[in-house]
Simulated scan of single mutants.
Amino acid sequence: MYASEIRPTAGTSRLFRPAEVAEMLGVSTVTLAKHRAQGTGPAHLVLGPRTIRYREADLEAFLEAGRRSPAHQAA
């Protein structure tokens, strides 16, 4: 099965390409790749030797995990 054959269905998340995720996070694709290699970025799927995708739900979880309430901000 190729990435082009994978389509979200009811109850599944949309899949994003690294370039889309990098733009959402305000980082370069190189920085995003470094985060993948270090295990510090959002969870990702490896669909082939050169095919990486990110689930919408995983991106939301990653962003929520990094969210801080105003009480946690430095004064």
Rank of each mutant, 00 (worst) to 15 (best):
G48C: 10
E56D: 13
P18R: 10
R68L: 13
R55I: 09
E64Y: 06
A33M: 07
A22Q: 11
A75W: 08
A33G: 09
H44N: 10
A43C: 07
G66P: 00
I6K: 08
R55A: 15
P49K: 14
T31R: 15
L45W: 09
R55D: 12
A3G: 04
A74C: 07
R55Q: 15
I6W: 01
V21F: 03
L32W: 02
Y2K: 14
A19H: 05
L47W: 03
D58A: 10
S69N: 05
S28V: 04
I52G: 01
Y2T: 13
A43M: 08
L15N: 10
L25T: 11
S4R: 06
P70L: 11
S4W: 03
I6R: 11
P70M: 04
F16R: 07
A43V: 11
G39D: 03
R14A: 08
L32H: 02
R53Q: 11
E20I: 01
G41T: 03
V30Y: 02
T29S: 14
R50H: 06
Y2G: 08
P70H: 05
L59H: 05
R7M: 11
T51K: 10
T12Q: 15
G39C: 04
L45R: 13
Y2I: 10
L25A: 09
R50F: 01
L45Y: 08
H72K: 13
S28T: 15
R17D: 12
G39L: 03
A37K: 12
E56S: 06
L15G: 09
A37R: 13
T9V: 13
T51C: 15
E20Q: 15
A71C: 06
H35D: 05
G11N: 05
